[in-house]
Design a protein around this nucleic acid. Sequence first.
RNA 1: GGGUGUAUAGCUCAGCGGGAGAGCACUACCUUGACAUGGUAGGGGUCACAGGUUCAAUCCCUGUUACACCCA
Length: 947
Amino acid sequence: MLEKTYDPGAVEGRIYQAWVDAEAFKAGAGAKPGAEPFTIVIPPPNVTGSLHIGHALNNTIQDILVRYNRMRGKDVLWQPGTDHAGIATQMIVERQLMERQEPSRREMGREKVLERVWAWKAESGGTILNQLKRLGASADWSRERFTMDEGLSAAVRKVFIGLYEKGLIYRAKRLVNWHPGLETAISDLEVENIEVAGKMWHLSYPIENSGETIVVATTRPETMLGDVAVAVHPDDPRYQGVIGKYAILPLVGRRIPIIADEYADPEVGSGAVKITPAHDFNDFEVGQRHNLKPINIFTTAARVNSHAPRDYRGLDRFEARAKVLEDLEALGAVLWVEDKKIMVPHDEKTKQVIIEPFLTDQWFVNAEVLAKPALESVRAGRTKFVPQSWENTYFAWMENIKPWCISRQLWWGHQIPAWYGPRLNSDPDFGKPDAGPKIFVAVNEEQAKKDAIAYYGRQVEFQTGGLTSLSFQKAMADFESTQRDRLVPAVWASRRASDPFAELSDSKVPLHRDEDVLDTWFSSALWPFSTLGWPEDTPEVRKYYPTDVLVTGFDIIFFWVARMMMMGLEFMGKEPFHTVYVHALVRDEQGAKMSKTKGNVIDPLSLVDGYGADATRFTLAAMAAQGRDMRLAMSRVEGYRNFVTKLWNAARFLEMNGCVRRAGFEPHRVNLAVNRWIVGATARAVDAVARHIDDYKFNEAANAAYDFVWGTYCDWYVELAKPILTGELPAEKQETQATAAFVLDQILKLLHPFMPFVTEELWGETGKEGPPREKLLILTEWPDLHGFADAHADAEMTWLIEVVSGIRSVRTEMNVPAGAKIPLVIVGAGEETGIRVESQLQALIRLARLEDVSYGSDVPSGSAQIVLGEATLALPLAGVIDLEAERARLRKDIAREDSEIDKVDRKLGNEQFVAKAPPEVIEEQRERRAEAVARRERLLAALARLS
RNA sequence: GGGUGUAUAGCUCAGCGGGAGAGCACUACCUUGACAUGGUAGGGGUCACAGGUUCAAUCCCUGUUACACCCA
């Protein structure tokens, strides 16, 4: 006997374990022979993260798709795993070091720190995946992957080398977004521009030898220490005379040219702008156009460096601003200050640290080239976005894509497989100031060594003291100066004469591996194939790539989806997925974005604790309408918790009434109209749910299931079955018992993708009687109920429902006590109505709470009357009903028909409508009118009888 | 500044070129042998505003307003 209520907390863990024990999540579990694959890769959460409501939605949707396709017999792989979240994870560990007052990262050294990060990963890494399990996620955990697994790291190296060899990855000195706190470059996607109240300072720079000044406006006065020019618009009449002259930079004394460049906007400020190529993206471009050498005035921690006058060195950027302004004020060079809203780049994660444009050597991916085929794939529809509108977002970004800075000055991540050494004098780039070191990109140190020996024709010596360390820099310089000297025999001869070690200094070449690591998204971009074993040619790669659907939030279309498209096409030759389902953002009830700082976060696990995983999942699914953010209301979760209870109690009712599954039950052979009807309705519900899942309309699928289970099965079928189940006719009773049990089975299957726990539990419970269950529900086939519709039974039951609802409505309006049984007299019934009444007599009596049903030629006086089809249903309530109230009720109904007739008449009276509307629409309107007229006539007759 | 999206019942949201819907909340009645986490009945809407297209607009188009988000 089932308990009175379902207790998710007591059931979920046990059910989950049963699935695991049955290996039900394994790739291919439950697949039909030769089944086509269905693959989803999980968007890998941060390894040290924890579950938030967005993950819950994301994974609920994936699990619905996965369970549904598994039940349909496909060869399903849901590939789980996590990413290493370079910056975030290293930050956590560094913070731990600080809190525990241990040595800092740099004091500790790379190896020790990495040990600590791995330890932290081991400690906290399982958290989020375990949380997903509580939601019921049926991913193949035996295949769990981590972006820094050896296999995935091999994929990263292979891709890096491949792109490098094609020239699609390169190292260059560029302005990048620099995080001065973490002292690393970040990509432009990791920067958030935030509007803040700032100021615009108008500074005057003296023009050399003229006694005149030129006024520049800036929001960052401290960067003037790195100014290399002043630019004016070439057409600006105010400045025609000064172009080509020089200004003298105050405080610094540098002589800087006044140049003409269209970047200077005559409308803004004075029309003249200071140019600081090392500290501003626009200025950098101006500098390149005019061959100006950038002067970097900051250290990696954004403190003023030795390129600035002594007084400012060591100050951080904000202190430097204050002092520069103070000193300029003292010179009278600050003309005026205006308040201005300015956009300031912040670190996107914490929104605390201001990002600095910073000139450094970094590695870049030529994304523009890779984006072309990725754009084409979506344009050609080989990969579709659902909802489609997100394609515009994708296009907009991909069409304007910038080089992707992939190197990070961190330790936690994939170390870049590049080694640096000096150049030989035979190298075409030898001696070029901007050429940088000779680079060897190789799969490992051994290969790098081979390549280097081949290039140098000498032995190489690996150094580890740091790329910028004095020892390595000196060794490089020594080698290169020896190479230079060797170019001129006379010089070389004299050097050898004076330096006994001259030969030695180019006999061994110093080589140093790049210390930086790659952006985490670089490895995430490979996720759809690296997790399957690539670059090995594994059976999984062959079977499961390309994957089918990617389920994700719009916020990582750029970060992740676009990059997977690029990498998948480049290395696999095929799009990584045919569909990208972009789900909504979950907001709080007021529509605000959930955030820890706002304190409005809804913890999905607390929902699971409070309402059960099934209710939580069902809520998320039911609210997952396409193209719209989701405001999560607790009342909805509660409502779906009640739905779980409802289902549970329906099963309990069946159990109490001997509704046991029957072996060999043939649903299309049942006789009773009520049973024929529910079987057909079940088939329709299954179709609707399947169709909506196929269309990624999870809300509609959930609602269709909900409506059927509650609104049809529980509210009507079970109620209609009651008199049969408690009746005396064994054949009818047995058929109904078997049908009820059969339909419940279909309901459990139908709901399983949404509510896996309670359905599996009921599957087990109802399996204790009747034919034994062959499999767990999770591995059971999706229902196939085609051809079960019975129009005749549908019509009869629809009629019955209308009669019962009509009588109930009148009872309430006439204030008939709920417990009172009243007689029903049917007047003017046709043959079919008579048959229906006979067929449904017991149900009618019970559901409408009737005393008896009889036929009459006249409506008894003092009756309430219901007009239904050709018949009038009279409820003789003389003495009970208030005649005036009944007249009012009828008049109201008549008025409703009047307005209906009027509305239709206006349409049909319109010549244009009759001429132009499709015939079926006109016909429909005519039918509506005829029906309304007939109802009206009977209602008028009913009213007349009361007068 | 550019772009995208959203405005439908008190709330949270579906829907859609031809009859305004659900859940919650609300009102009334009901402890009827599955379920009060329930049942039955009911009230409640100029479908943001202004134009346009159409025989017909909540739905399509244009504009306005408000809000949200993305990009610079």
